[in-house]
Write a protein that binds this DNA or RNA. Structure first.
Lengths: 89, 89
DNA sequence: TCTTTATATTATAATATTACAATATTATGC
DNA sequence: GCATAATATTGTAATATTATAATATAAAGA
């Protein structure tokens, strides 16, 4: 299997979960900490953290610790624009 | 869960499989029948047919029967361009 | 109708993903 | 040190996806 194709499919897999899409939408307008994201989505903290980890691991977001909080923001502008344009349809 | 978000995630899910991405790449240059796609990917016929069904069901491709053959082609130009630009990266 | 070719469907075992409670970590203030 | 708050990890049961062999269907020609 072609590596480039596998990588592309993996990228789509990261985006294939509604919670992860929601998190990205939460972050479209700027950065946010985990608690805010959790309140926005109204799901358990461990679930949010798990998906944040997947998004971070895929290089779509990054988290910076500030005291007790970790502030997440979108890194990949391409994905940002893709989500935006697809949501606009 | 927001319906629009679910739909978007579902769209990504269709693209999250390397065989399906490969099929779309096979079809980028034009239409093709199942046997050609199968030879291009070198995997069992039932596997190809299964994934063609998923792509068709998602509205990304369409198949037209011509005698014994079914000719598939890409319908969704947005997806076509997305794949193209992402493969170019 | 029988055969052959092309494609689709079904059945199922293997594997992957998911949600989330429970627990652990990390940082801060006392 | 201890307590508390914010976040991450682990364990696990439920569910979904996958690959592919076996079988079914559809079309064409003899």
């Amino acid at each position: 299997m072609n590596k480039k194709i596998q990588k592309l499919a993996d990228k789509f897999k990261v985006l294939s979960n509604p919670i992860r899409v929601s998190i990205l939408l939460c972050l479209l307008n700027g950065q946010s900490n985990v608690t805010k994201i959790q309140e926005c989505l109204n799901i358990p903290q461990s679930t949010v953290s798990k998906h944040l980890g997947i998004l971070k691991n895929a290089g779509l977001i990054e988290g910076e610790r500030s005291g007790l909080e970790v502030i997440y923001s979108i890194v990949d502008d391409g994905v940002k624009n893709m989500i935006l344009s697809l949501m606009a349809e």
